[in-house]
Nucleic acid binder design. Structure first.
Lengths: 132, 132
DNA sequence: CTGTATCCGTATAGATACTG
DNA sequence: CAGTATCTATACGGATACAG
């Protein structure tokens, strides 16, 4: 239906897909985006395009394998676009697509939540461990 | 500093903790909450308290082991509280704590995003696979 | 610089059986 | 009903070596 607005289509999708269902495709998608490296990559790209090496430094501790794998998946899923400049040596930039942009804010919130509530969580852990 | 407001302390924490850093505690916390079952559990509990068996049905496909493990971790981290009614048979309800409540909305957004953008992601995958 | 390929240990997650 | 315990498969992720 080409006359549907984007909002209308999204509302439609919300009725069709349900991640609570085991074999709903959205369950797998939720699994994919529920990932530390995805969250950090999108959070980093939220600031603007980044080169591969910049991301590698920003996401401290990420292995080449995981970074590449994460970026490939994000590219395939349409969240990120890969821009190659055929210089010598080659330069590759990654940037958020419109779709990626729509998720980036949530990832920033998620990352921010972990940072903001770290102390409370540690206090809860101490209390829990003391009780047992 | 007992005179700090909650907001002030949280802002303080945001400067102290940085999930981009490999060995920042918040990195591990981000890893923990970036989890399919955590997202679905919090999304379910957002509606109100649930019994163990209700969660088991709601989070279709979850194994007893993963459900228990997820709930234990959430309890230890202070996101969920476990309420035992010592009847026969015993009844156990799980409900969000205040801390859990502060994350639940983000998890609903994450789950909703997966459901709302499923079609776009599948289209992107088809396009990507066709290009290669 | 931006990857790919391979090896390998570990953590994860499912299945199954059993318990207060 | 609400778990615990154990076994096993495999997927995840890190380290290393190599390449366009």
């Amino acid at each position: 239906m080409p006359t549907m607005t984007a909002e209308r289509r999204r509302a439609e999708a919300k009725r069709e897909y349900d991640a609570f269902m085991a074999d709903c495709p959205s369950r797998k998608l939720l699994d994919r985006i529920s990932d530390k490296w995805v969250a950090l990559a999108l959070a980093s790209l939220a600031e603007g395009p980044h080169r591969y090496s910049e991301l590698s430094r920003r996401l401290a501790g990420v292995s080449q394998k995981m970074l590449t794998q994460t970026l490939r998946t994000l590219e395939r899923d349409g969240l990120v676009s890969r821009v190659v400049t055929p210089s010598v040596p080659v330069r590759v930039d990654y940037e958020l697509t419109e779709l990626g942009h729509s998720l980036q804010e949530t990832m920033l919130v998620l990352k921010g939540w972990a940072e903001a509530h770290m102390d409370e969580v540690e206090a809860a852990r101490t209390a829990y461990d003391a009780a047992s």
